[in-house]
Design a protein around this nucleic acid. Sequence first.
DNA 1: CGAGAACACACCCCTAGGGGTGAAGACACG
DNA 2: CGTGTCTTCACCCCTAGGGGTGTGTTCTCG
Lengths: 211, 211
Amino acid sequence: MRVALVNDYEVVARGVAAMLRAYRDEIEIVEVDVNRPVAQPVDITLYDTFAATQGDQLEVRTLSRNPLAGKVVVYSWNTGPELVAAAIANGASAYLSKALPARQLVDSLQAVHRGELPPTDLPKGTTTVVGGDWPGREEGLTQREAEVLALITQGMSNSEIAERTLLSINSVKTYIRSCYRRIGVTNRVNAILWGVAHGFQPDRERIRNPV
Amino acid sequence: MRVALVNDYEVVARGVAAMLRAYRDEIEIVEVDVNRPVAQPVDITLYDTFAATQGDQLEVRTLSRNPLAGKVVVYSWNTGPELVAAAIANGASAYLSKALPARQLVDSLQAVHRGELPPTDLPKGTTTVVGGDWPGREEGLTQREAEVLALITQGMSNSEIAERTLLSINSVKTYIRSCYRRIGVTNRVNAILWGVAHGFQPDRERIRNPV
DNA sequence: CGAGAACACACCCCTAGGGGTGAAGACACG
DNA sequence: CGTGTCTTCACCCCTAGGGGTGTGTTCTCG
C-alpha cells in the first residue's frame, strides 16, 4: 500500500515515517510532501495537522481533489465529532487520532484502503505521545508548545493561533509563556529569532522514499 | 595606505568599499570585517556605526586595543561634540562624518594617517547621502529606516533602538511606522520575518581584498 | 522660490502581549 | 496512592507597540 505523508514541517513528516518504518512490509511511504502537492499516484495521503489548517479547511479539500492523492486521511490530536464530520464533508476519507500506536495506525490505514473503516469511526487511543517527532523536541518543548512556537514563527497573532489550533486564547498564552521559559527568551521577537534559527519555519520540499 | 572596514552588515561595508574604489591608488581596502576582529596589519580601521554601537562603547575600545588595527576612525552620521569627545576618549584616533564626499573622506583618512588631522576637527559636509549602501535600499528604505529595521530584526525593543541610535523613542516609532508601510507589514513580528528574509540580520565573515 | 523627501520629535489613544496566579482532568511512574 | 507532567482554561494587571495626526528643519531639484 503506497502512502504519501503531508505536513509543513519535514521533521514532523519524517517522524511519522520513522514511526511506520517497522511496518514497511505492509505500508510503503513513497513520498513526504512538505508544502508541495502529491506528485505520484498513492493509495492514501496522510495529512498531519501539526501547525497546519484543520481537516475542514482548503488544504484538505485541495488534497482530496488531487487524483494522485488517493484517499485522504486526516491525522490529528483534535478529534471532536463536529470537526471530524466537517473534515469528512470536506473530502477526507477518514480521520485518525495521533494517539494510535503504530500497529493500530497501520491497521486503520489498511482498513481505510479496503474501504472498511467508516469515516466517522475513530479508533480508541490514549492521549499519550506514542511516536512521531516535532521541531524543538530536543530542546524539551512539548508538542503543543512546539506547535504554538511554530505558528508564532510564521508570524501569527495569539488569536490566529487560537483559531488554527482550536484552543482558547488563554491556553495559547499559557503555552507561549512556557515556551519562552524553556527556550530562554522573554518576548515574541526573540522567540521568533530563536524559532528561525532552530527550524521552526515551514520547510519546502518533496522527499522520495524517505526511509 | 592599508585600510580595514568594520560593520555588522556586509552590504554596508561593501558600500563604503565601492565608494572608495575610485581612489584605490591612494587607499587600499585590504579587508572587510563583518562581526570579526581585524586579522592583518592595517594603517587605519574605519568603523561604520550603521546599526552598531556608537564610538563611545566597547566595540571601539576593543578595536583600538588591537595592535593590528592601526588608527581607529569612527564613521558616523552622529557627530555631536560630546559623542565625538567620548569616542576619542574611548580610543578612537578620529571621528569622520558620513556626509563627506569620497574625495574628502580619502583626504581625511590620509591626514589621520599622517597624524595631521586633529581628532576633534570634523570636516564640514552636507547631510545628503553621497554614497554607500545599506540593506533594503532596493526596497526604497532610507538609511534610518533600514537601520531601525536592522535593529528590530536583531530583536531590540523600541527603547533599546532609541538608545543605540541616539534618537528619541518618538522618532524611532516614526521610522518604524514608515518602514512597515514600505515593506507592507503591520506589526513587528512580520517585520522581523521580512528582515530575516531580506538580509537584515548581521552577517558574519571576513572578506579579503573586497574590491 | 516652492515642492518633495529625509530626518527628527511630540502627543493622544487603544489593544495585543505577557507576567502572575490559580484550578482541573488525564496519564505515567515509583 | 501520591507525585509530577502535559493539557486546558480563567482572570487580573501593566506596559510595549503601533495607529493617527501634527510640526519643524535641512536639503535638493525643477
